[in-house]
Structures are given as structure tokens and as C-alpha cells.
């Protein structure tokens, strides 16, 4: 739609600016909070402009962390989160791309059943099956380990389904040409399918990385050792001061730091991400 009416432009921009404000305001408040001293929040009014304690607050969190809440330094928790998010994203992609390959390109008995079994797990997210899953992980001795943090979250119906759709759009003739060119199934997978779904893999990586980074309930449940605390669960532990008021300025500084890696992933993969979602030509 191309229209040239200044009033409409103005209205559209005002609306967009309003939307940006709504989204950005909480982030701004968090940032402002992270630059004030411990007493700024006790007075009842929330300051709207940055205070003088920025360097002090951030260096304290990166250095030693908030020892009263039993959480380690922020850097350590960020590393845990990074390992968890990477393992979940990479693991999910590897598993779903290979299972979609099997479902689309091989004729084996109960192929349809296999696909529907995977599909049905869409209706069983971690929150629903949390008790039995916890039991299984505990019995396998995976509490307080990276394996316990990631493996139960890796199986993924959504990603399998997405790759299935991607593979279905690849013309049969391409598969046939590869067969005539002497490419066996694995060679076809490596030389043709993977490069063709490169942008989809990138798009999925962004989504899954953020999914993994934002995991809250599961890490909270299965990590009792401070060595395996993730940043998101850690923030909650900090805010949960036992006696005394939460140290909001430090909690907010941690929250700001926790935002950085997902933002970086989105910024650096944005081009591929958009391409992966809109590209249709194969």
C-alpha cells in the first residue's frame, strides 16, 4: 500500500514511538535502578535519571556477586547460562535436522507414526511433565550437572516440524539429480540439504538460544549447587532476600548484564534470521 498523506505519516510515527516507549520503559527503569545506591529505592519514588553508582554496582556484581543470597559472581552464572543455552540450541538443531531428514527422505515402517509421536510432544512442554522428568533426571544422577540442565530440554517437536517443512519445499528433482550424480543419503544430507537450510538453521538458532537462555523453572528445580546456577534463576535468588529488603540496584545490574548475550546473538544473526524466515526460493 502506497499512500502519500502527511497526516497519516504523522499518526503512524506517533503510534510507533508510543509502542517503542512502552517496550523500552521497563528496560530504562532497570538501567536507571542499576546506577543508584542501595537507599534510592527505599524512599518510595522511583528515580527516572541515572545515578552516580554505575561503575561501583556493576564491578561489584562482576567481581564477587551478592554473597548474602548465596549466588556466585555474575560472570560464573553467565557462563553457566551460556553453556546451557548453547547446548540446548545446538542439541535441538542437530537432533531435529536429522530426525526431519529421516522422516522426509526415508521410507521405513511406521514412519507416519514416528512423525506423529514427535508431533504430540508439542503438547507436553517441560512444565507439564516436570515431576516425572525430575524423577528420571534424579535417578540418572544428573542433578547439578550440565547434562541435567540441558538434555531434558533438547528433544524438540517444533524444530523437527520446521525442518520437515523446509525439506518438503526442496524439489524432488534436486534429490533425483543428486542421486544421478552419485550422492548417497549422507552425502546428499551434507552437500545439499544442510547448505540449503543454512538460513533456517540460523533463524532457529537465534530462537532456541534465547529459549535456552531464558529457562527459569527447570534450572531452579534441579540445581542446588551454586556452581551450576544460571543467571536467570540466579536473579530470582538475589531478589529473594531472606531478612531485609532486596538489593534492587544490584539485582537490576545483574538483569542488565543478563540481557547482553541474547541481544548480541540477535544483532549479529539478524540478517540471517530474517532471511531464514522470509526466504522461499530454493
Amino acid at each position: 500500500m502506497i499512500e502519500n498523506r502527511p497526516g497519516l505519516h504523522l499518526a503512524a510515527h506517533l503510534l510507533l514511538i508510543f509502542g517503542v516507549c512502552v517496550v523500552a520503559l521497563p528496560v530504562w527503569v532497570a538501567f536507571v535502578a542499576s546506577t543508584h545506591g542501595p537507599t534510592a529505592f527505599m524512599s518510595g519514588t522511583i528515580p527516572m535519571w541515572p545515578g552516580p553508582h554505575l561503575v561501583e554496582n556493576y564491578s561489584r556484581m562482576l567481581d564477587s556477586g551478592l554473597s548474602t543470597s548465596g549466588t556466585p559472581a555474575v560472570g560464573h552464572m553467565m557462563m553457566n547460562s551460556l553453556i546451557m543455552a548453547m547446548c540446548i540450541a545446538v542439541g535441538k538443531i542437530v537432533i531435529s535436522v536429522t530426525s526431519a531428514f529421516a522422516i522426509v527422505y526415508f521410507r521405513f515402517p511406521f514412519r507416519g507414526l514416528a512423525f506423529w509421536c514427535i508431533f504430540v510432544t508439542l503438547m507436553l512442554p517441560v512444565e507439564v511433565r516436570i515431576v516425572p522428568t525430575f524423577q528420571v533426571v534424579a535417578d540418572l544422577g544428573m542433578l547439578n550437572s550440565y547434562a541435567g540442565l540441558t538434555i531434558p530440554l533438547i528433544a524438540s517437536a517444533t524444530a523437527t516440524f520446521l525442518f520437515r517443512q523446509v525439506f518438503l519445499t526442496i524439489p524432488d528433482e534436486l534429490t533425483e539429480a543428486a542421486r544421478i550424480d552419485g550422492a548417497g543419503p549422507m552425502k546428499f544430507f551434507r552437500d545439499i540439504l544442510l547448505p540449503l537450510s543454512r538460513t533456517n538453521i540460523a533463524a532457529l538458532f537465534v530462537i532456541l538460544f534465547i529459549y535456552g537462555w531464558n529457562q527459569y523453572l527447570w534450572p531452579l528445580l534441579i540445581t542446588t549447587s551454586a556452581d551450576y546456577y544460571t543467571i536467570v534463576a540466579g536473579i530470582r535468588r538475589m531478589a529473594d532476600a531472606v531478612d531485609g529488603l532486596p538489593q534492587w540496584h544490584l539485582v537490576m545490574a545483574t538483569a542488565m548484564l543478563a540481557m547482553i548475550p541474547p541481544v548480541l546473538v540477535v544483532i549479529f544473526m539478524q540478517r540471517l534470521f530474517v532471511k531464514g524466515l522470509v526466504e522461499t526460493e530454493k
Binding site: P171, E173, L174, E176, A177, A178, D191, I192, L196, E281
Partner: peptide, 10 residues
Amino acid sequence: VFQNYALYPH
């Protein structure tokens, strides 16, 4: 030789 050429696009 295929009708839609079937060249590897990448």
C-alpha cells in the same frame, strides 16, 4: 537433464 534444470542453488 530435468525440466526445471534441478541445479544445486547453493
